[in-house]
């Protein structure tokens, strides 16, 4: 192959990248498992392909602001998608899931009693500054009146996924994590936090500026609104808009 032809091929590959039918999705860490259930359904039905990156909502937001090549953003809050929309970098915001916290103990059969009695060394939460589930966790502790007592025993995961991992490796006895993350564990070790103890974690999705050109991104968001997808999301431990006890649109 002549050099000129080779260069032409490279340029062409460059110009069409990413391949048509591929969407890059930035997903808040708490939604990782649900995304794993959703993605194959969407890919089978549509023939498009999804490339998924996970992280804390705060980190993903900062990356998107600085030109990270994502097409869709599934955040864990409403604030960051709203800010992206305001900055003209995103559009079509809607709530795709409403999350709930759970207290997860690796060993105790009664996590709630363990938390209240203070018989633990470490309580893992997500970083309240960057992760909405971390913010909700602080809310729960304050409303239970336990915050001053446990503040010194908090260990902060970079995102809610790391908070869960601290508990599963046994390095923290308790963790305030997303209910969706602990659905597959022993139910006795999980205390689903009553909805009145924290504001519902409304999670918004947006189409990012880069995604407007990609049919796969638009199709994925459409799929996310479908009843089929909403059913999967509910099975994964979330409520969907209109299905939450405290949801008044």
């Amino acid at each position: 192959m002549s050099l000129r032809l080779f260069l032409a091929v490279v340029m062409l590959a460059w110009a069409t990248a990413p391949l048509a039918g591929e969407a890059r999705v930035a997903v808040a860490a708490n939604f990782t498992l649900a995304m794993r259930a959703l993605a194959p359904r969407f890919e089978q039905a549509s023939g498009h392909r999804l490339v998924v990156s996970t992280g804390s909502t705060g980190k993903l937001y900062a990356q998107i602001l600085h030109g990270a090549p994502y097409d869709v953003f599934l955040a864990a809050d409403r604030e960051r998608p709203r800010l992206l929309e305001k900055a003209g970098r995103a559009s079509g915001r809607f709530t795709y899931a409403i999350g709930r916290l759970a207290l997860w103990a690796r060993q105790s059969e009664d996590p709630q009693a363990q938390l209240r009695s203070g018989s633990f060394r470490r309580l893992a939460i997500a970083n309240p500054k960057t992760a909405p589930y971390g913010k909700a966790a602080i809310q729960v502790l304050r409303r239970l009146g336990l915050y001053p007592a446990v503040a010194k025993r908090l260990v902060i995961g970079e995102n809610v996924g790391q908070a869960r991992q601290f508990v599963s490796t046994g390095n923290a006895e308790l963790g305030l994590v997303a209910l969706a993350q602990v659905l597959d564990t022993t139910p006795d070790h999980v205390w689903p936090i009553p909805p009145m103890l924290h504001d519902p974690v409304r999670q918004d999705a947006v189409l990012l500026a880069r995604g407007r050109r990609h049919p796969a991104a638009v199709a994925f968001l459409e799929f996310l609104r479908s009843e089929a997808a909403r059913r999967i999301i509910r099975q994964q431990g979330y409520a969907t808009a209109g299905n939450h006890p405290r949801d008044r649109p």
Partner: peptide, 25 residues
């Protein structure tokens, strides 16, 4: 970042503090 748990005064060292600030803008 992996074994620290980001605790101020205990495990929140400079590099982690910087990472935290950047994430929080």
């Amino acid at each position: 970042l992996m074994i620290g748990g980001n605790i101020p005064g205990e495990t929140r060292v400079l590099s982690v503090a910087i990472y935290d600030h950047v994430e929080a803008l």
